[in-house]
Simulated scan of single mutants.
Amino acid sequence: MIGADQHEGEPNRAAGLVPALEAIRLGRRADDRTDAVEQVGRTLIDIGAVAEDYLGTMHQREAAGSTYIGEGVAIPHGTDESRAHVHRSAVAVVQFPEGVDWGGEDVRLCVGIAVMDSEHVSFLASLARVLIVPDQAERLRSARDARSIIQILRSTVSNRS
């Protein structure tokens, strides 16, 4: 449920991070993993969540090890040190229907994460609950509108035990 001071898609600190509508980009194309990280990082910059310098740390983190987590999803993010470049915690989602080669894996959904502290833990748990159910994972990867992505992620937050 959205609180009185919360807009649809904005994070609810008690329930974990949920992407805002303007942080979701559907039907995109990327030449490669670097381009995909660039697009999701630019989305975080565009919504005012991070400073320009955060984008470089996302590329550094990806170079250090793949952020692919399975089921066609990658979660690019910065390093612990990059938190100095985070203005507010946020999640951005960029969908690549044609897929992006991610070190031999096919990524269809890129979820960029920027956090000031540990809010990402509950979000990652919610994302994991979606990805372990093949039908839900497919619905998330192939969503046709931003509200569907928010609804899928929000439902796992509200249904947790």
Rank of each mutant, 00 (worst) to 15 (best):
R147D: 02
A143H: 11
E138W: 10
R129G: 01
R144T: 12
E119A: 14
R144S: 10
L127T: 03
V115T: 15
C110H: 03
D117M: 12
E119C: 09
V111P: 00
V130G: 08
V111D: 00
V133S: 02
G112M: 07
H120Y: 14
V130D: 07
D117V: 12
A137Y: 13
G112D: 12
L127G: 04
A114H: 04
R139W: 05
A128R: 02
L124V: 06
L131N: 08
A128C: 03
S118E: 14
S122V: 10
R141I: 09
V115H: 05
R144Q: 13
L127V: 03
V133F: 05
I132W: 00
P134R: 05
A143F: 09
G112E: 09
V133N: 08
R139Q: 12
M116D: 05
R144D: 10
S122N: 06
E119Q: 15
A128G: 10
A146G: 03
R139K: 14
L127A: 03
R144E: 14
A143C: 06
P134K: 05
R147K: 07
E138H: 15
A137I: 12
I132Q: 05
H120K: 10
A137M: 11
V121M: 14
R129D: 08
C110W: 01
L140T: 11
L140Q: 10
M116P: 00
G112F: 11
R129M: 02
F123P: 09
H120D: 09
C110V: 15
H120P: 08
D117L: 13
D135T: 15
R144W: 01
A137Q: 14
G112H: 11
L131V: 02
A143V: 07
A143G: 10
A114G: 07
E119P: 08
H120A: 09
G112Q: 09
V115E: 11
R144N: 07
A143S: 13
Q136N: 10
D135N: 11
A146S: 11
F123D: 11
V115A: 14
C110Q: 02
R129I: 03
